[in-house]
């Protein structure tokens, strides 16, 4: 364990002021790294302001986790297994779509978990899809868990691929493994994780199997211990590739840090009104990853506030 002292110096000054000093010191050393995943490993990256608009108050929580998936894949069962009795239900702000949220603690951190409506895609053709997509896009959850039916993997992967275009902080819960076995299917979860570039946790949520692995995977992605390298494939027809490339470059000139510029380019070309509107109103600007220094400052301020 003493090997760790090189990067993790033992601080004798454990008072809040001391921690703030350490943060500020870290900030200096971190500045060269632009991506947050390489920076402060323990800070949440979520976008508290946007989350608040989406009805999630983050004051008591360290991380926010979105739970998505096709209908009938046991999403609610996973939700119940993760949250137990710590849950409550209501509506999405301004929408008549039911919503459940709950929380759990793992590894000393508090996780807020929001159950998104079950959808087959994220093209926003129905209210449910719009709600689910807006939360992943604008809420920028620290982790998005996609529950998939292992016995119907092909159909379920459509949603996973669409989510991976929007966010890279994804954990796939490969649920209903027992059913897949019953159908005589063998699913290689490690191969799937390699192909998708995100952690895959096999579960049988009905019988509470594999939940530890899922929690660990969520925690690893939330804290930045696992950095996802999601599989992004070229979904556009090849004769249009340069058009999409061009539009993506243009978007990047406006928002250099936008994590999903290519997806936005595709949505614009597809004539997605909601995304056009978001671009027009500058909502996408909020989504550019918060720089490391800014995050560290926020943490510092919070700690100073607590000390005062």
């Amino acid at each position: 364990m003493s090997d760790g002292t090189q990067t993790n110096e033992v601080q004798t000054d454990e008072t809040p002021a001391g921690i703030v000093k350490k943060m500020k010191k870290d900030k200096v050393t971190m500045q060269p790294f632009p991506a947050v995943s390489a920076g402060c490993n323990t800070c949440a990256v979520h976008n508290a302001a946007n989350l608040f608009k989406l009805g999630v108050d983050m004051t008591e929580w360290d991380y926010v986790v979105a739970l998505s998936g096709n209908p009938n894949v046991g999403k609610s069962t996973v939700f119940n297994a993760l949250t137990g009795l710590h849950q409550h239900t209501g509506n999405w702000p301004g929408k008549t779509v039911a919503r459940a949220e709950g929380g759990f603690e793992y590894g000393g951190a508090r996780y807020k978990i929001v159950d998104l409506p079950g959808t087959y895609s994220l093209l926003a053709t129905s209210l449910d899809e719009e709600v689910a997509r807006d939360f992943i896009l604008f809420g920028q959850p620290d982790v998005t868990v996609v529950v998939v039916d292992a016995s119907r993997l092909e159909r379920n992967l459509n949603l996973v691929l669409q989510i991976l275009e929007i966010t890279d902080r994804v954990v796939v819960a490969l649920n209903l493994m027992d059913e897949a076995k019953r159908h005589g299917l063998q699913v290689d979860e490690r191969q799937l994780a390699r192909k998708l570039g995100v952690p895959v946790a096999p579960t049988v949520a009905r019988y509470n199997e594999g939940m530890d692995g899922l929690l660990q995977a969520i925690s690893d992605v939330a804290t930045g211990k696992t950095v996802c390298r999601p599989h992004r494939f070229q979904s556009e027809p090849s004769d249009l590739r340069h058009a999409v490339d061009q539009l993506e470059r243009e978007i990047r000139t406006l928002y250099p840090d936008l994590p999903n510029a290519r997806w936005v380019a595709l949505r614009l070309l597809d004539g997605d009104e909601r995304i056009i509107q978001a671009l027009r109103r500058g909502e996408l600007g909020d989504l550019s990853r918060t720089g490391v220094d800014e995050t560290a400052d926020n943490i510092g301020l919070r700690l100073e506030g607590a000390a005062a």
């Binding site: 092909e154 992967l157 691929l161 290689d188 191969q191 998708l196 599989h231 494939f233 070229q234």
Partner: peptide, 14 residues
């Protein structure tokens, strides 16, 4: 394209 990609991945995993 998305469906084809999903089928390709599923094929190699299942």
């Amino acid at each position: 394209a998305t469906y084809a990609e999903a089928a390709r991945i599923a094929d190699s995993v299942v």
